[in-house]
């Protein structure tokens, strides 16, 4: 079998529009679901390291359940099965909503990514030395202040590089939304394939886009890992200097 590559189809306005819209939807899905999963994952992580069993056990149970279920299942679940869980009038209202596929895809990716975010944030929070938790408590800060003024800012610095890597995964996972016909980039390439039988050209363009963005995010993540220390101020940098890590990083530079 032979395949004649024909780039002119990408110049056809209706097909080019599919790809351009695809890029737009991919960015929307990836950005919003990453944002939501950061909030959701951090909340889950706080629940998992908190002293209260009422918060800890449900969060642990949920994370261990969700970690073992595929992302594409969540996408289908929120689109097809979730409306059935609601009262009939709400369910049909959701099904009639034109942006429902987009919303379901974003919720599904957020749920999927939040599990990994919570693992990363939990590891970061557990890496804070005990003395620092105790110091926050001894200063007479309320639990809310302990978190917002001391523990979250310190944790944020350790978890930023792994979170950046996770964001790359979530960006690539946005392609899963094609299964519920969210018009993102992967869906657009399949649409062009079924309209013109010229999938290879469109898929090549899409692959270039994904690879460029993923590699650029990767370079950014590596820079955070290496050079991030320089910009760090405050408690995080101080305890790291005590542990000799700052010296090691400086000598490498």
């Amino acid at each position: 079998m032979r395949y004649e590559v024909d780039w002119s189809i990408l110049a056809r306005p209706e097909l080019a529009a599919l790809l351009i819209d695809g890029v737009r939807y991919t960015m929307i899905v990836a950005a919003v679901s990453t944002g939501v999963s950061l909030v959701l994952g951090t909340a889950l992580a706080i629940a998992r390291v908190s002293g209260s069993g009422w918060l800890r056990w449900p969060a642990e149970l949920w994370v261990n359940l969700a970690r073992h279920i595929p992302g594409v299942f969540w996408v289908l679940f929120f689109y097809f099965a979730f409306p059935e869980l609601l009262p009939a009038t709400w369910g049909s209202a959701l099904n009639g909503w034109t942006s429902f596929a987009l919303a379901a895809g974003i919720v599904a990716l957020s749920v999927d990514n939040a599990t990994y975010v919570s693992d990363i944030v939990r590891t970061g929070a557990l890496a804070i030395p005990r003395g620092e938790w105790e110091a926050a408590r001894c200063c007479g800060l309320s639990p809310w202040q302990q978190w917002t003024c001391c523990l979250i800012p310190v944790t944020l610095r350790t978890v930023t590089p792994p979170l950046a890597n996770r964001t790359i995964h979530n960006f690539k996972n946005s392609s899963l939304c094609m299964v519920i016909a969210v018009p993102e980039l992967t869906w657009a390439t399949q649409q062009i394939e079924s309209l013109t039988f010229r999938g290879i050209e469109a898929t090549l363009v899409a692959t270039l886009f994904y690879v460029t963005v993923a590699l650029a995010l990767g370079v950014w993540a590596r820079r955070l890992e290496r050079g991030g220390y320089r910009h760090w101020r405050g408690a995080g940098a101080v305890w790291r200097r005590e542990r000799g890590e700052l010296a090691r990083v400086d000598s490498r530079r």
Partner: peptide, 15 residues
């Protein structure tokens, strides 16, 4: 390695 890791799995399957 870098190319394959930067491409979504779905696109690898389509390729």
């Amino acid at each position: 390695v870098e190319l394959a890791r930067a491409t979504p799995l779905l696109l690898l399957v389509f390729w």
